[in-house]
Amino acid sequence: MKHTIVALMQDHPGVLHRVVSLFRRRAYNIDSLTVGRTETPGVSRMTIVIEGSDVEQVTKQLYRLIEVLKVSDVTSDPTVEREIALIKVHAPKSARAELVAVCTVFGARAVDIGPNSMIVEITGEPSEVDRFLDVVQPFGIKEMMRTGRIAMIRGSQSHQAALEVEPREDGPVTSLALAG
């Protein structure tokens, strides 16, 4: 089953490598991954979509990474999910009107027109993007790219980055020398 995992992490070089390394170790294939800034400087947010059975274990192990602040598997939470796709479609003059009509139905828009092709952009739920691609397929897709999904939990439940980076006293300190 596909899982959507949202993680907040410190914006440091190498963090992405550490996170991805955990999935690679278990031979999980990452379906999509998006990283970007959040409302709090120094904190980035990652949305990872993976196919895997024991995702809870990986989630727990993500927490072991020093720079990871918060991890949630939002697969079963009510979320708003969005993805952008850019599609270069084969579109000679004769086909353009029909393609534009299809775009209108899906809320997609043409963002570039060449002699024989158009680039269309669609933003929506990943499933909506899938359906749009099915419909556009017969025109002939020359090139296609998707951003991968981003997800945000609906309502007041939040993933606010600021809450995770409030300055605190040094972590709990035990002297191992004394403990021994």
Binding site: L65, E166, G171, T174
Partner: peptide, 12 residues
């Protein structure tokens, strides 16, 4: 410099 590791808070 003070240690500030917001992602590292082991539970004791």
């Amino acid at each position: 410099g003070r240690i500030n590791l917001p992602g590292y808070r082991p539970t004791y």
